[in-house]
Design a protein around this nucleic acid. Structure first.
Length: 842
RNA sequence: GCCCGGGUGGCGGAAUGGCAGACGCGGAGGUCUCAAAAACCUCUGUCCGAAAGGACGUGUGGGUUCGACUCCCACCCCGGGCACCA
């Protein structure tokens, strides 16, 4: 009588043994090919949730699989441990963020151990440990040395609920904070930046090298970087007398070919020239009304694009460099100070927004680029001077077409990237009035945060020397623990921290009290794992070169821009510093879908949270792991369903019973049924091949299905073939195959079966992966489907290697088929070898 | 508005242009049992039919093809990203 499957005793037993054996500790070994398998490290928010279970189960299957394939696998874990929730919890529970954070880490680590994830715990990293964050400070200083750190005043995103500023990437599309979903405000503040824009072009170009990334993530990043090719054009500004005053205003445009159609000129409300041009004039009041209205617009309104276009004439003019025309300067809320130069040449016939504005304020709309099928073309073709100052269109034409009313450029092709655009730009350049230019949407990364629980920015404000970096030998700047966060204090409330002396002049100075964006911590942790205990450097290049880049990265799609863009930036800078040979951190990326409940995201406020610990308690970690992978392909969202988990538990029980039955009473058949054995053997090889291929393409659900099929076939064999006709050696082989195949999914059960039931001495997780033989997986007879006029009318079994003529003859001889085509004219017979025969008759 | 995904039984999902619905869940019936649970077996897309069998069927409408869930065109719905970026 075999012992029943008891997941809890099996799981606890092997977790202890694996720890004692150091099964998952890994060292650099030049003799073996490496694989670096990594899941995005978690924020220690408390108990683990189903999203964690899914993310880390995927990674664990991949890590265990490649280990069995003979790779030296690095599979580390750690915690992204700085961040705001710890401070909020501190205020709520009158505790310290550190205490809360470390307690949560312990809770999560225990859960991860109960899940049986194969982590090298010796390399675990907590970003709030001084041993880690000191190197973040060191990297900050190196960025500074390289001119990639800047402190500047500018309009920034302020989250009133988090009471800190945010980077552009951290404001969601609808103008809300990525963390708390509050509406973000614009404040004019002096802040610290990393100059990620210096890497904009490389960040864009190298997306093409990331062939192992989902297309949509690359598209999102490319859109975010937002490269535009065009020209800078200089307009001479006229004084109040209407004559050029010697000043110029530069604009960026993607359509220099439309310059002849510029009928007004726009400044952003925040543009510094606005006051200068209008203060004290009759236009000041109207202009200030527009400025004030723009300032009142919320981020949401502005982002929606639905804010009404407002404008006011400044009373001044600029000179269009291509034709010397005087163009009125207006102020409008639809011009953004942050993009380009904050000034725009308006061409209403070629730009939808300019068109709308021109119609509202009665400004001229001279056509300059006409579609090839535009009826106006007959009238205006080859017309160089402006004879038409308005159009009857109800929208602008922004496409490719023919340039008209455009002086010497008339007749050229106009449009984005057109010959006309190049010709106009070259002419401007030769006149010293413009140049080719590339603009990016990407902004520099605002990294300072007005919060306590983060990595202190290693800088000092000296009244005489200005901004001074903390000297390397004075690192780390330790985050003081005696700040009363529960009372809302930050470093700025802590004189013992900020009162210091200038490292340069020795005078009294103030230490920077902002901390770094936690995304800086997560931008290089994967390097730290390669050399986690290094006390003299963030990591040794030797270790980084052995392990990096990460071969398979797994995490949520919500980081498509945020973390993944920042990490790519960091890697490029670290490479330029000579610290690594990798210019991209993650070779292959898998973005897993969300785990929902009844179509909604699980959250405490909705009260629909399914606790993984409860599931482990009922069915064991193995069933939970296997089930969450079985539910859906990893990149799709899934809806949690408890009944299915029970089904997976049943499957594991059936595997357990099968393997124990076979191991305990392996029959030695005296009259083996060779045909039946052949069928089971074929299934064993087919399934081994399928499971292997499926893992490689992340088809964990179909891999598990295939294992179920093998078990079904093995069960049928055992039930339908008499004891003395069964092949005992084959059954044992099938039992071992199943155990090996399921090992990455249900590691504890597989280990118990392998070592205790099947009697092997070595861990199943150290065994080589299952081998399989395509020839044995192939059937020697195949069922061919016969279609008549596209409908299945019969089936016939033929030898697998039967030639086309044989198959054709067999197909036409099928009674049902013969009946169908009787009296008809067979016009065509398509024979698809190994599949079907299609007969066309009428 | 633009750019990506995605729409398949009661449910999760499976299908290199070749038998749609593998596998699992749920459901129905059965075996075992004093009974129940567990386990095992059979059936389970819809409609017509006693059955044999037939018709229909992968969001909608067209097209290509001997053959379309799969490829092409147009559209509808759902999810996500971007959005006054000059």
């Amino acid at each position: 009588m075999s012992t029943p499957y008891d997941p809890h005793s099996v799981e606890e037993k092997w977790q202890a043994v694996w720890d004692a054996e150091g099964l998952y500790s890994v060292t650099e070994d030049a003799s073996k090919p490496k694989k670096y398998i990594l899941e995005m490290f978690p924020y220690p928010s408390g108990d683990i949730h189903m999203g964690h279970v899914r993310n880390y189960s995927i990674g664990d299957v991949v890590a265990r699989y490649y280990t069995m394939r003979g790779f030296n696998v690095l599979h580390p874990i750690g915690w992204d441990a700085f961040g705001l929730p710890a401070e909020n919890a501190a205020i709520k529970n009158a505790t310290h963020p550190a205490k809360w954070t470390y307690a949560n880490i312990d809770t999560q680590a225990a859960s991860f151990r109960r899940m049986g994830f194969s982590y090298d715990w010796d390399r675990a990293v907590k970003s709030c440990d001084v041993d880690y964050y000191r190197w973040g400070q060191w990297i900050f200083l190196k960025f500074w040395e390289r001119g990639l750190v800047e402190r500047k005043k500018s309009p920034v995103n302020w989250c009133p609920s988090c009471k800190t500023v945010l980077a552009n990437e951290q404001v969601l599309g609808d103008g809300v904070c990525w963390r708390c979903k509050s509406v973000v405000e614009k404040h004019d503040l002096e802040q610290w930046y990393f100059k990620i824009t210096e890497y904009a072009q490389e960040l864009l170009d190298d997306l093409d090298t990331l062939t192992g990334w989902p297309e949509r993530v690359k598209t999102m990043q490319a859109n975010w970087i937002g490269r535009s090719e065009g020209a800078e054009v200089e307009f001479d500004l006229c004084g109040v007398d209407g004559e050029p005053c010697g000043e110029t205003i530069t604009v960026f445009t993607t359509r220099p070919d439309t310059l002849f159609g510029c009928s007004f000129f726009l400044l952003a409300p925040e543009h510094p020239l606005v006051r200068e041009l209008t203060d004290g004039t009759e236009h000041a009041e109207a202009v200030q009304a527009v400025v004030a209205a723009a300032a009142r617009e919320t981020a949401v309104e502005r982002a929606s694009g639905e804010a009404e276009k407002l404008g006011a004439f400044t009373g001044r003019y600029v000179i269009n460099p291509v034709n010397g025309e005087k163009v009125p300067v207006w102020v409008s809320n639809y011009v953004l100070m942050e993009y380009g130069t904050g000034a725009v040449m308006a061409v209403p016939s070629g730009d939808e927004r300019d068109f709308e504005f021109a119609r509202k304020y009665g400004l001229p709309v001279p056509p300059v680029v006409l579609a090839d099928d535009d009826p106006l073309l007959a009238e205006l073709r080859d017309v160089k001077d402006r004879v038409m100052t308005d159009v009857v269109w109800d929208e602008a034409f922004a496409g490719d077409g023919v340039m008209v009313q455009s002086g010497a450029f008339t007749g050229l092709r106009g449009g984005k990237g057109s010959e006309g655009m190049h010709a106009v730009t070259e002419w401007l350049a030769s006149e010293g009035k413009g140049r080719f230019s590339i603009n990016f949407r990407l902004r520099d990364w605002l990294i300072s945060r007005q919060r306590y629980w983060g990595n202190p920015i290693p800088a000092i404000h000296c009244p005489t020397c200005g901004l001074v970096p903390v000297p390397e030998d004075q690192l780390p700047v330790v985050l003081p623990m005696d700040v009363d966060v529960a009372k809302g204090e930050t470093l700025a409330d802590h004189p013992e921290f900020y009162e210091t002396t200038c490292p340069t002049c020795g005078g009294a100075a103030r230490r920077e009290t902002d901390t770094m964006d936690t995304f800086t911590c997560s931008s290089w942790y994967y390097f730290r794992y390669t050399d986690a205990r290094n006390g003299t450097a963030p990591f040794a290049r030797e270790n980084a070169d052995y392990w990096m880049p990460v071969d398979q990265y797994i995490g949520g799609i919500e980081h498509a821009i945020l973390h993944l863009l920042y990490s790519r930036f960091f890697t490029k800078v670290l490479a330029d510093m000579g610290l690594t040979g990798a210019r991209e951190p993650f070779t292959n990326l898998l973005t897993q879908g969300m785990v929902k409940k009844d179509g909604e995201t699980m959250s405490k406020s909705k009260g629909n949270v399914v606790a993984p610990e409860d599931m482990i308690a009922r069915y064991g970690a193995d069933a939970l792991r296997a089930f969450i992978l079985f539910m859906a392909p990893p990149d799709k969202d899934l809806d949690w369903n408890q009944d299915g988990l029970e089904g997976m538990y049943r499957f594991l029980n059936r595997v357990w019973r099968y393997v124990t039955d076979v191991a305990e009473v392996a029959p030695s058949g005296s009259a083996i049924d060779e045909a039946a054995a052949k069928g089971l053997r074929r299934e064993r090889h087919r399934v081994a091949g399928k499971v292997t291929a499926d893992i490689e393409r992340f088809g964990f659900n179909t891999a598990l299905s295939a294992m179920m099929e093998l078990l079904n076939a093995a069960g049928d064999y055992r039930r339908t073939v008499a004891d003395d006709a069964r092949d005992g050696a084959l059954e044992r082989e099938v039992a071992e195959t199943l155990t090996l195949l399921i090992a990455p999914y249900a590691p504890h059960m597989a280990e118990e079966l392998w070592r205790e039931v099947l009697g092997h001495s070595r861990s199943v997780h150290r065994e080589p992966w299952v081998s399989f033989d395509e020839a044995l997986a192939a059937a020697d007879e195949i069922e061919i489907v016969v279609q008549v006029n596209g409908k299945v009318r019969g089936k016939v079994t033929v030898a697998a290697d039967a030639d086309e003529e044989t198959v054709r003859a067999a197909a036409l001889a099928v009674p049902k088929v013969a009946e169908q085509i009787e009296g008809l004219n067979v016009r065509k017979v398509v024979v698809v070898p190994g599949k079907l025969v299609s007969v066309v008759a009428n």
